[in-house]
């Protein structure tokens, strides 16, 4: 009997190892603002045309669009891609969402909690519509931590008092999203990509987030990578979809 149990455990461990080692090669693309106002174009504010070019290209070239919650189940044989947009600008609804609908592409928006319903940001009804569409996953981008400067935020992460405040802020944003959508979220994007191992453990273990994202450059190779803050590829204004694909291919194992 003991032998049998050991065998079962060994097989399970092997299966787990095999699964985690399986190469998923998921590219997570990081967008911010997507606008139809050419005066606002900047490195991280791209045009709606550029966004459509991307989605069209990925769609026509065999990529599978995933939401963060679907990453764990990604097909290792597919060309997997996750479209993410940080901050929750209202141009995501106005410019990006119609393109996502047109190509039936999935994406995630990481919303700054304090900006819900504010000028220039997504309104509650827009978030609800995005959520109901089944195409867009709404994630947490903290309530007010995002508005702290980089260096202030770094200080927060290394100070226990402020770390607690950071955690409370994540919970606050989660509650705001729950209030709007009627359900919570398990995706989190670190403002400025800044995190510590301790904060990551709290976010995963205490707050129950299953996918977290940083802004460090890279790919998600295996399921193991999904268990820590995931690297992304910045989408820069002026890049072509081919440029992005080139980056993806250069990062692939």
């Amino acid at each position: 009997m003991k032998k049998f149990i050991f065998t079962i455990i060994a097989v399970m461990l092997l299966l787990c190892t095999a699964a985690s080692a399986e190469n998923l090669n998921i590219a997570v693309i990081c967008y911010h603002s997507i606008t139809d106002n050419p005066l606002k174009y900047s490195q991280y504010c791209i045009s709606a045309e550029e966004f459509e070019d991307d989605i069209k290209y990925f769609s026509e070239n065999g990529y599978t669009f995933l939401k963060p919650s679907e990453m764990w189940y990604a097909d290792p044989n597919a060309k997997n891609i996750v479209i993410t947009s940080d901050d929750g600008y209202d141009d995501f609804y106005e410019c990006a969402f119609p393109i996502l609908q047109k190509y039936n592409a999935k994406a995630a928006v990481f919303m700054i909690g304090s900006k819900i319903d504010k000028h220039g940001y997504l309104k509650s009804w827009q978030l609800q519509e995005l959520d109901r569409s089944g195409l867009v996953e709404i994630g947490n981008h903290t309530t007010i931590m995002h508005k702290r400067q980089n260096n202030v935020l770094e200080g927060y992460l290394n100070d226990e008092t402020y770390l607690n405040e950071y955690v409370e802020d994540i919970k606050d944003c989660s509650a705001r999203i729950y209030e709007v959508l009627g359900h919570g979220t398990e995706s989190f994007s670190y403002p400025y990509g800044l995190y510590t191992d301790r904060l990551e453990r709290i976010v995963r273990t205490n707050l129950g987030y299953t996918t977290t994202f940083t802004t460090n450059f890279g790919m998600v190779y295996t399921q193991d990578d999904i268990l820590s803050p995931m690297k992304r590829i910045y989408r820069i204004h002026g890049d072509s979809p081919q440029d992005i694909e080139e980056k993806i291919n250069s990062l692939k194992y």
Binding site: N37, P38, L39, K40, Y41, S42, C45
Partner: peptide
């Protein structure tokens, strides 16, 4: 009025 990201006022 708008200020473009390259600093010009429109």
């Amino acid at each position: 009025p708008q200020i473009s990201t390259d600093g010009n006022t429109y």
